[in-house]
Design a protein around this nucleic acid. Structure first.
Length: 302
DNA sequence: AAATTCCCCAACCGCACGATA
DNA sequence: ATATCGTGCGGTTGGGGAATT
């Protein structure tokens, strides 16, 4: 067996020879793969830290685990591009689950979470580059827009605000309230604003505005017109945030629902009157998924 | 042909969570 | 109740090959 410390030395020397200093990332070599495979065949899967210590590899348990799961375990469809069917599953699941890569991977035998994550990240990047607003194919997006034929509840968006809010209250089975927008927003928000374990980060407006200015990648600001053409899933799971003045006829229902799911960094109630929020920013979603928030028995189905 | 930029993927990092001592 | 350990997850980074200049 090749001494692992000697291996490490060789690689260090190689890195120095290349003039790049010491690399932080060390690619796995075929000899290392063989050692790991042999070790697991002999000892079975168990304590990864012990694998790191006892296999003779100069790798920690985490690194061994990752290598095994993503590259060495049997049954992986390595080097096979995603089929169209697999892509559809990814988009479809992502539209519902968001960045729950491991959950999505469980729907696709032979695929790993890392693979799927890379695929979606590259896909999102391409969409952004090509000016494609929706990251989902039309057949997926359709399910989550109010023009779609399924699942997502329809609310007349052309109605006056009170009627829209009233519909929303009925739809969400909210307790009887005055049905003003402010009341609705208060109710939708309260679990997140007052829950110490809330997974939503609420950015103050100036902070978000500063983030917009200082970053050209992490925030992609959409006009409200663009927003109203997007599916809910896009709004939730792509890297968009919204910032801007909402007009009278913006899709208030989308925003109200989004407030409840995503969290809203700020809204204004002007002159104490009920008003469509005039200045809205949506903070980035972190962990909770829509299905965790809504009772599936309720009218709203995702 | 050489230098530079782009892009993809593998590897790493930090954090959260559950089990156990 | 608390500390520690092992595991799993999602976000991010860097190496290196491909494409472009």
């Amino acid at each position: 067996m090749i001494s692992s410390s000697w291996n490490a030395k060789l690689r260090l020397m190689e890195a120095r020879r290349k003039g790049k200093g010491i690399s932080r990332k060390l690619s796995w070599r075929s000899e290392e793969d063989e050692i790991l495979i042999k070790y697991i065949k002999r000892n079975g899967l168990g304590n990864w830290n012990l694998v790191g210590k006892n296999s003779g590899l100069s790798r920690d348990g985490k690194s061994c685990r990752l290598r095994w799961l993503n590259h060495l375990q049997p049954g992986l469809k390595k080097n096979l591009p995603f089929s169209e069917k697999e892509k559809l599953v990814i988009f479809s699941e992502h539209a519902v689950l968001g960045n729950k890569w491991s959950d999505i991977a469980r729907q696709l035998p032979g695929r790993t979470d890392n693979e799927i994550k890379n695929f979606m990240n590259i896909h999102k990047k391409k969409c952004l580059k090509n000016g494609v607003i929706s990251i989902y194919p039309p057949e997926i997006s359709m399910r989550y827009t109010d023009n779609g034929t399924t699942e997502f509840p329809k609310i007349a968006s052309s109605g006056d605000h009170d009627s829209v809010v009233h519909q929303l209250v009925e739809l969400m089975d909210l307790p009887s309230i005055q049905n003003t927008e402010k009341d609705v927003i208060d109710i939708l928000f309260s679990p997140y604003l007052h829950n110490p374990h809330s997974s939503f980060e609420l950015l103050p407006q100036p902070q978000l505005a500063a983030a917009h200015q200082s970053s050209n990648t992490s925030f992609n600001v959409l006009s409200s017109e663009q927003c109203s053409n997007l599916s809910i899933a896009d709004l939730l799971y792509s890297d968009y945030s919204m910032d801007g003045n909402l007009g009278e006829h913006d899709s208030i229902e989308i925003f109200l629902i989004m407030f409840s799911i995503v969290g809203c960094s700020s809204f204004q109630v002007q002159d104490g009157k009920k008003q469509v929020p005039t200045s809205v920013s949506i903070a980035k979603r972190t962990t909770a998924s829509a299905s965790e928030i809504f009772d599936p028995n309720q009218t709203m189905v995702w």
